[in-house]
Design a protein around this nucleic acid. Sequence first.
RNA 1: GACCCCGUCGUCUAGUCAGGUCUAGGACACCAGGUUUUCAUCCUGGUAACACGGGUUCGAAUCCCGUCGGGGUCACCA
Length: 571
Amino acid sequence: MTNRNVVTRFAPSPTGFLHIGGARTALFNWAFARKHGGTFILRIEDTDRARSTPESTRGIIEDLKWLGLDWDEGPDAGTANPYTAQTGHYGPYFQSQRLEQYRQQAVKLMQDGRAYKCFKTPEELAVDREEARQLRRPYKYDRTQAISLTPDTITRYEREGRPCVVRFRMPDTDITVRDSVLGNVTVKAAELEDFIIVKSDGYPTFHLANVVDDAAMNVTHVLRAQEHLMNTPKHVALQEALGFDTPRYAHMPLIFNPDGSKMSKRDKAKAARQGAKAYLKEHGNDTAQLARKAGSLGANEIEAFVNKKTDDTTIAALLADALGVELPEIDVHDFKQSGYLPETALNYIALLGWSPGNNVERFDLDFLVEQFDLGRIGKANARFDRAKLLAFNTESIAKLPPEVFLKHLAAHDAEFHHRAYLEKLGKQNFTVFAESYRPRCRTLQEPFVNGRFFIVADDAFDYQPDAVKKNLQKDNGEGFGVLQDLRPLLADCQPWSAAQLEIVVKQYAEDKSLGLGKVAQPLRVAVSGSTVSPPIYDTLAILGQAATLARIDRCMELAATQPQQPQTQGH
RNA sequence: GACCCCGUCGUCUAGUCAGGUCUAGGACACCAGGUUUUCAUCCUGGUAACACGGGUUCGAAUCCCGUCGGGGUCACCA
């Protein structure tokens, strides 16, 4: 491609975590810029004073970094204070720091007769809308009153302190958006209304700030979600009035839940609420009991949450944690926590609305950059399929070199488990732990969930009744017998290594003419409480000799305290 | 409701722009076998789609029209 001046941007509003849809928008803008050797900008659109937070800004930066997306201009990625440390010639990159620019452009538009002040309050507007609704007529803002205000009246209103907004005067012409994905989209003049460009608090709206910044930062291509399509005619009109070039737009299809609903933070609240309700129903609506279970939550907080008074994600997370409910992943951070590899997650979401063709679907970022093309972005909305993401992740993890997997796993342990596994197991055994799970885990989280028994005290895990019944008590306690036989052999095992354990256990199985399953399963249940663990030799090796013997002893007590039911044998 | 966008297996998609090579390909899921000490893998096979109706054409998944269906927008949010 010959265009060496490509400039794209990702312009999130810092009102929450980075959403998975936002991640795709960032990815495509990044890929397009990289493909053309252009510039990728991160711009923070914090013009919503009530909802924007510095924490959110930091979170978004962290998430983008984790995904491996870098930007050429914007807040610095590694800084403690992104508000002051920024890079690029066209900054600052926080809209809250660019208010003077928007003010100047708004003044210019008013001087040119392309914008005007409007003193209608939100309440008055709501009344107008309601009236139109009652009459079953489409509502459209009527500029007549506002533009007939005399300068004297306006001055008087302002002296009285009456709040006002600035509205852009839409031209009386149809507007066609040239879109690289959708083609030409024309909206009739009658469908367009004068929209607000400066709020009564003096802050610009998204429309003004977005258009002014895109021009100021020389943005050439705007890749954004299709939900913005109806905003674009407004932006095109604004650009015309301001004398700006219109960037090339490309509106991408939306991403939905498997059931077709919108992927939103509320899904998490919904799932947690469902879990909480089920628990309360089972426990006589005892909110206090649930509060105790959930630790740092108050009963009134839980009540408010269950009664849909709030969708607070922190409450949702705490409840889910206490109840063992899995929350759907919505934000980038959720996918990180669930143990997906960043490049794999990116690979998967790239496929939601884009495809390289040729039956290729597994690729890395280099390939994406090389192949990325606006013409291959689809038009139809996509549903997010976690099963497929999981399949991708499984494949990716299986291909990871041991040392890379170890690094990933250690990072996950550090971020989500307070290094509990590394500290309890020790560096040596943590490596064995990682290697034993590497070929059999689908996410980075699974080893920590399935392998929790490795780090708890020898008497602090439960024996699953079904597992005990099937592998220990069955056939007159055959499993217990195996444990009894093995106990001294293991006590003598030297050295305590997976290799040596394999020799000992296999020899025993052979001597007794037992299938390996008949030996491994009782052991597995004895040391882990369940029927699932890494290969039994690795499991015992990681656990260590002392813990293994202690757990076998504890398990044998089970045989004594829970005598098997009398069984009628065949003979 | 108005306006706008979209419509290929259950899901993501290839093929559509330049109609024939498509009795529609791949992946995930699912089903059936097989391998495996558990789990997770892995291997083999299978089920499964051009929303519907007209039109244009020798020929339509591909072009046109309509219907139906889905989605987006209609804020002093972005």
